[in-house]
């Protein structure tokens, strides 16, 4: 059964040129799907369309349906604000690229994490405080008590992204959209956050839509990928097929450059080992 079905999606601003044209893909319940493309290729716009949060002036046509057990099947394109708001946070939620700007700078972390728990699960008082602590512990934040009282500028980038993940999965969405969740982080922190996402998605059998410009990162965490260029899908399929036999020139370029980087690193390792 497919959880998310995007069919013939087209997104355009008021003045014509399509930013996304004729995009189609499906994500199964519990499945992991990667969306790859350079900046401006329409990846993030796709995520916003799925949440029904297109910037003002942009219009979507085609079809985006979310089919969540217990919540029925909903056509997102053209749906009313009320209907969409019921889905947000429950059917799907998003982790954004830049955790510093994705958290309200003037609100304590605990209060921000409490937001969706209070609104969607109706928790209050002590139960709410306990749920906040549990949510912070779940993303492996040491000292959840201190973090809950801190403001976003008082904790590190990696901690902030963990908080953003805690908020996104607090209400156990069926689909988690991760929009370049590790791009703004240090490489070592990146690996930790990726491993955390990987574990949480499996543990709660959520579906994952992972958006990135980095083929290597995506291929490590998803099983299907789609490569976007200028709003058009140029290649899609199982990760192994795409990596081993890219057909479109742009896909081949991506794979080759990822390989080159790998080879360069291996080469460094070799010389490093030789001199010691």
């Amino acid at each position: 059964m497919s959880l998310l079905e995007v069919a013939g999606l087209r997104v355009r601003p008021g003045d014509g040129r399509d930013l996304i044209s004729d995009l189609s893909f499906t994500v199964d319940a519990g499945g992991r799907f990667g969306l790859i493309g350079e900046s401006g290729s329409g990846k993030s716009l796709t995520a916003l369309t799925i949440m029904g949060l297109l910037p003002p002036g942009m219009t979507a046509s085609g079809s985006v349906t979310l089919d969540v057990p217990g919540m029925g099947r909903t056509e997102i394109v053209g749906a009313g604000e009320r209907r969409l708001n019921r889905l947000r946070g429950r059917a799907a939620s998003v982790v954004f690229q830049e955790p510093l700007t994705a958290l309200d700078p003037l609100m304590r972390i605990g209060h921000q994490v409490a937001g969706p728990l209070r609104r969607i699960q109706g928790l209050r008082g002590r139960a709410l405080r306990e749920a906040v602590t549990a949510a912070l512990e779940e993303v492996r934040l040491a000292e959840p008590g201190r973090i809950a009282k801190a403001y976003p500028h008082e904790i590190s980038g990696g901690q902030r992204q963990r908080v953003a993940i805690a908020m996104a999965i607090a209400c156990r969405p069926a689909l988690l959209i991760a929009d370049e969740p590790t791009t703004a982080l240090d490489v070592t922190v990146q690996a930790e956050v990726l491993a955390l996402l990987d574990g949480l998605v499996s543990a709660h059998s959520m579906a994952l839509l992972f958006i990135s410009h980095d083929l290597a990162v995506v291929s490590g965490i998803t099983d299907h990928v789609l490569i976007l260029k200028d709003g058009v899908a140029v290649e899609s399929g199982a990760v192994l097929d795409v990596v081993n036999g890219p057909r479109h020139p742009y896909a081949r370029e991506l794979v080759d450059s990822a390989r080159e980087l790998d080879a360069a690193l291996d080469g460094l390792n070799a010389t490093d080992g030789g001199t010691r």
């Binding site: 949440m51 949060l53 969607i120």
Partner: peptide, 9 residues
Amino acid sequence: FITASRTSG
């Protein structure tokens, strides 16, 4: 963070 907050409903 406004968009982020809206994604959680």
